[in-house]
């Protein structure tokens, strides 16, 4: 059984069709990358997966539950890392993680042990008693990553996992996500960053115009497989290309092989 399954998902806001017949599945053991340009329907899909919105049509299942009818039970069993950091809070990271442990009904001793492990892993032990409002964005992101995994969920939904993190911590988080999925968990990663997707995902779905336009396995790709960036660019529809700046449109039209030519001419002495 798929950990996450979406079929025929539709959601409109007024006359705007944000998601249109979206479909994909994520199995345990996978890091699934959800790639798409701005406005492709990624955020709306994540909101449907976490029960924040009621879809107009379609089926959504997360760990066997319907988030539309069981939003709280669904969120109890998954970890969620939103793209936007939490709004400023006057709790410290230690208190915030205790708060998350309480709303998730976890034993205090278990929470304390998990806090130690995560501060060790991401290196924010020195900031455990600093007010969240006074932390840098990178430190805040570390705390948010820790909260998403505090209860060791079977599935995690992550929006831009590496935002604001320094390269060293980015590498740690990437490795952790891969290892976490390998431990029979499902990791769903929504990102704009193709390099991130290539480095950690076992499979990606490319979304455009509110639907999944193609899926591709990144495990053991054939030697002659097109680079992911090229696949991504090919899947950008004409409609979306119209909204792109002229330079980006040229990239879409010409393909990545030609990307550097004009720039090289422009920058040569």
């Amino acid at each position: 059984m798929a950990a996450i399954r979406v079929e025929g998902l539709c959601k409109s806001y007024g006359s705007v069709r944000a998601v249109d017949e979206m479909g994909f599945r994520v199995d345990r053991g996978e890091v699934f990358g959800f790639l798409g340009p701005n406005g492709a329907g990624k955020t709306t899909t994540i909101r449907a997966l976490t029960g924040q919105i009621e879809p107009d049509a379609g089926t959504v299942r997360v760990l066997g539950r319907d988030p539309t009818t069981e939003p709280i039970e669904t969120r109890r069993h998954v970890g969620i890392l939103p793209e936007q950091g939490s709004p400023p809070s006057f709790l410290t990271p230690r208190e915030y993680l205790e708060f998350v442990g309480s709303v998730r009904d976890l034993e205090p001793s278990y929470v304390a042990e998990r806090i130690d492990r995560w501060t060790d892993r991401l290196g924010f032990g020195g900031k455990l008693d600093t007010l969240h409002t006074d932390l840098s964005r990178g430190q805040q992101q570390k705390v948010m990553i820790a909260q998403a995994f505090l209860h060791e969920p079977d599935a995690v939904l992550i929006d831009e996992p590496l935002a604001n993190l320094d390269p060293l911590v980015q590498e740690q988080v990437k490795r952790f996500l891969v290892a976490y999925a390998a431990d029979d968990n499902a990791v769903f990663v929504s990102t704009h960053n193709i390099e991130v997707a290539e480095s950690i995902c076992t499979r990606v779905g490319i979304v455009a115009d509110g639907r999944t336009v193609t899926e591709r396995s990144l495990e053991d790709p054939p030697a002659d497989a097109d680079p992911l960036l090229e696949v991504f660019l090919e899947e950008v529809t004409d409609a979306e290309a119209r909204d792109l700046p002229a330079s980006a449109r040229r990239i879409v039209e010409d393909g990545i092989d030609d990307i550097d030519e004009p720039n090289r001419e422009a920058t040569e002495p």
Partner: peptide
């Protein structure tokens, strides 16, 4: 919005 990542209504 901030509470929508926790299992609370």
């Amino acid at each position: 919005e901030a509470y929508r990542i926790y299992p609370v209504g």
